[in-house]
Amino acid sequence: MTVKALFSSIIKNNNYVHIFNNITDQKEYLNKVIDYILSAIEQEKHILVFESEKLILDLHKELENILTKEQLSYVHTINNFDYYFSTGSFQPSVIFNNLTKILSPFVEKIYP
């Protein structure tokens, strides 16, 4: 099974997915993130990517060559440094409360 097929299966069977990649090769990692994003967009699902500012810029450059403007509107990015340190706490309960605030506009609009 290809990585993209695996991602498609995971996305199809779950409304919310958190994936942690422990990959040291940045290009390989970026390709896996792109495969995941493409799998989500094929199923008309929005995706929220928490990543470093540099990788977000690289990701946007790659996606702009692949996706239409409408498809790009399904991709939402958050700087992971800003997210994890915005509250001044790395406690799971604080992080999840912050996530709830971030996700509420998506839930209110019923975005999958």
Rank of each mutant, 00 (worst) to 15 (best):
M1N: 14
T2G: 13
T2S: 15
T2M: 12
A5Y: 13
A5D: 13
L6Y: 14
F7I: 09
N15W: 13
V17G: 10
H18F: 12
I19K: 10
I19Y: 08
N22W: 05
N22K: 11
N22H: 10
I23R: 07
I23W: 06
Q26H: 10
K27I: 13
K27R: 07
E28A: 06
L30M: 09
K32L: 08
I34C: 01
D35A: 02
S39C: 04
A40H: 01
A40Q: 02
A40N: 01
I41F: 02
E42H: 04
Q43W: 00
Q43C: 02
Q43P: 01
H46Q: 04
I47W: 00
V49D: 00
V49T: 02
V49A: 01
F50V: 00
S52T: 10
E53M: 08
K54I: 10
K54V: 10
L59G: 07
H60D: 09
H60F: 10
H60G: 03
H60A: 07
K61L: 12
E62M: 13
E64I: 05
N65M: 11
N65D: 15
I66S: 09
K69Q: 09
K69N: 14
K69S: 12
K69V: 13
E70W: 11
L72T: 10
V75F: 03
V75H: 04
H76A: 03
H76K: 07
I78F: 03
N79Y: 03
N80A: 13
F81R: 14
F81N: 15
D82P: 00
Y83Q: 05
Y83V: 03
Y83D: 07
Y84K: 08
Y84C: 06
F85K: 05
S86L: 09
T87M: 12
S89E: 05
F90H: 05
F90D: 04
P92F: 01
P92C: 00
S93P: 00
I95F: 08
I95P: 01
N98V: 00
L99P: 03
L99T: 02
K101A: 04
K101M: 08
I102F: 01
L103Y: 06
L103V: 07
P105A: 07
F106M: 07
F106W: 08
F106T: 05
V107N: 12
E108A: 15
K109A: 15
I110V: 14
Y111I: 11
P112V: 10
